[in-house]
Design a binder for these strands. Structure first.
Length: 564
RNA sequence: UGCCGGAUAGCUCAGUUGGAAGAGCGACUGACUCUGGAUCAGUAGGUCCAAGGUUCGAGCCCUUGUCCGGCAGCCA
């Protein structure tokens, strides 16, 4: 874990565990992350993983990765592979404890039989619709199933025949006999098994009855010897049911503790919505860099360290909360600032011709790779007579407090020379096509021997030597902090940001040639950019992870506000 | 008019066994600077939902109320 800055932070779960250890309810700690393999993981799962894995580490305990694969209709091997990759990428380590709930089906079946023999489980012939109708409501009790008092022998026979495949889907269920009048809906004779003649991704056609989550989950934790089953708030009302099953069976009993799941501003965080966005063509896949999926974040250039730091900062609590994306963005900036090699790239080029620079000369300038990291070394960057600078780094009529290039003004080209603008060239439409400047050979490297200062430093590239590349500039997927904040009759897609992806062709210094997908750079003064897998040997493709903090934009905004 | 949770700074969240109210983000101010977009430092005064109670002492415990969230899949 992140040793140097984690100042032994604690939370209500860690405290509860400490207590359990002191009171000797448990003599060790064993947690697990139990995803269902029916979708890709998102940053909300990362929070859960860091709680599960982080706690196991803090207490020198064990951590399992277990797939909760009890529903063959929705689950696929593709997601198993994707999830394993994501969890490993995040840095959680399950050693050799990779498990599948479906491997326990036989044991679960035996335990179900035990419950039938005990007289606390029965085969019910009601249809799904009838079960629903007889369950009652939040304020009214349900009514007993007419099959509730079948004999143990008949239940045993029927259940065995359910397994043998004698009955069609949905015709019968195995139910726990608890209390149809319980104020907790989960205790109104919940279904334990349903009939599903569907092939399972691991079990094949071995089974045609499948356990419900509520029946299976507690058993899985029990079988694995998990001490603390950490899960989200929505399962709080299910805890009494897990306890009931475990108590009836008389088997090992983990302790469940619930915490609030993560919500983020300007995005959505559910499988269902990801599917809608992908199917609707609003994003290009589950690993679209605009999505908060782990695959998307990874492709965007987020690092495991940044995500870990984010999880540390947001903490663990039971309060429903919506965390600002700005916190996440700040975490990547902090991490990438330390590790990203700096490079210069121009997004929106404006040609600069250095009138007094020799026509065919090209210099190789030594440039520091990362001012934050002395070990990062230096590289060569070509400098020539024709350059590109950022169009917005020049103003013909500079506003107050604008210190960048303007007619007659001198600025520094980062790592190179001072230049002074002597002429502005325009086309017939009055559009500026290029700048004529002079450079001062004495300022090579960026400092003037006579001690004179400039107020701005611009990034640049050599026009001939720079390589064109595609840059994908991402901004928030939604226009509002809460995507569900819509007019009546609309859904969250009404808040989609039409400009969440802007694709431009930029020009980058040649040192990036050959960079592999996943490589992260800081484009100086602009932001962090990550080489995308869509890159080809001919053309690099960059995803903007996040912009740098933009103080100038703030100044500009406040001046506008002051003026308006 | 059921059951289970929650309510702390502008925003988002911490707050260990009850013992002088915290962080981050944002904002503002300043330093520094070859990223005026790196970096660093400082400032922020919130009836800790409300009203009672227990206590020498309560954000933390108890009671009541208010508001918010979850629960009526043969999903997880």
């Amino acid at each position: 874990m992140n040793g140097d800055r984690s100042e032994s932070s604690t939370d209500f779960i860690r405290e509860a565990i400490k207590e359990d250890l002191q009171e000797e309810k448990f003599d060790h700690v064993h947690t697990r992350f139990p995803p269902e393999p029916n979708a890709y993981l998102h940053i909300g799962h990362a929070k859960a993983i860091w709680i599960d894995y982080g706690i196991a580490q803090d207490f020198n305990g064990l951590f399992n990765l277990r797939f909760d694969d009890t529903n063959p209709v929705k689950e696929e091997q593709e997601f198993v592979d994707g999830i394993i990759e994501d969890v490993r990428w995040l840095g959680a380590d399950w050693d050799d404890r990779l498990f599948f709930g479906s491997d326990y089906f036989e044991q679960m079946y035996e335990w179900a039989t035990d419950l039938i023999k005990k007289g606390v489980a029965y085969v019910c012939d009601l249809s799904a619709d009838e079960v629903s109708k007889t369950r009652g409501t939040l304020t009214e009790p349900g009514i007993d199933s007419p099959y509730r008092n079948r004999s143990v022998e008949e239940n045993l026979d029927l259940f065995q025949r359910m397994r043998a495949g004698e009955f069609p889907d949905g015709s019968r269920t195995l139910r726990a006999k608890i209390d149809m009048a319980s104020p907790n809906m989960n205790l109104r004779d919940p279904v334990m098994y349903r009939i599903l003649h569907t092939e399972h991704h691991r079990q094949g056609d071995k089974w045609c009855i499948y356990p419900m989550y509520d029946w299976a989950h507690g058993l899985e934790d029990s079988i694995e010897g998990v001490t603390h089953s950490l899960c989200s708030l929505e399962y709080e009302n299910h805890r009494p049911l897990y306890d009931w099953f475990l108590d009836q069976l008389g088997i090992y009993h983990p302790r469940q503790i619930e915490f609030a799941r993560l919500n983020l501003t300007y995005t959505v965080m559910s499988k269902r919505r990801f599917i809608e966005l992908v199917n609707g063509g609003y994003v290009q896949g589950y690993d679209d860099p605009r999505l908060p999926t782990l695959a998307g974040l990874r492709r965007r250039g987020y690092t495991p360290e940044a995500i870990h730091e984010f999880c540390r900062r947001i903490g663990v609590a039971k309060t429903d909360s919506i965390v600002e994306v700005a916190v996440l963005e700040d975490c990547v900036r902090e991490d990438l600032n330390k590790r990203a090699q700096r490079v210069m790239a121009v997004m929106n080029p404006l040609k600069v011709v250095l009138l007094n620079y020799p026509e065919d000369q090209v210099e190789e300038l030594d440039v520091i790779n990362n001012p934050e990291d002395p070990d990062a070394g230096t590289r060569k960057v070509p400098f020539a007579r024709e350059l590109y600078i950022e169009r917005e780094d020049f103003r013909e009529v500079p506003p107050p407090k604008y210190f960048r290039l303007a007619p007659g003004r001198e600025v520094r080209l980062r790592n190179a020379y001072f230049i002074k603008c002597v002429d502005v060239i325009k086309d017939e439409n009055g559009e500026i096509t290029e700048l004529h400047c002079t450079y001062d050979p004495e300022t090579r490297g960026g400092d003037a021997p006579d001690g004179r200062k400039v107020k701005a430093t611009l990034h640049w590239v050599a026009a001939q030597q720079a390589v064109p590349a595609e840059a994908r500039l991402y901004s928030h997927l939604f226009l509002k902090p809460d995507p569900d904040d819509v007019e009546e009759g609309q859904d969250f897609t009404a808040n989609l940001n039409p400009e969440s992806l802007e694709v431009v062709t930029c020009r980058v210094e040649p040192s990036v040639i050959g960079a592999q997908p996943g490589k992260i750079y800081q484009f100086e003064r602009q932001g962090y950019f990550c080489v995308d897998r869509d890159s080809t040997p001919e053309k690099l493709c960059f995803n903007r992870t996040v912009t740098l903090r933009d103080t100038w934009a703030k100044i500009e905004k406040s001046m506008k506000n002051a003026a308006g």
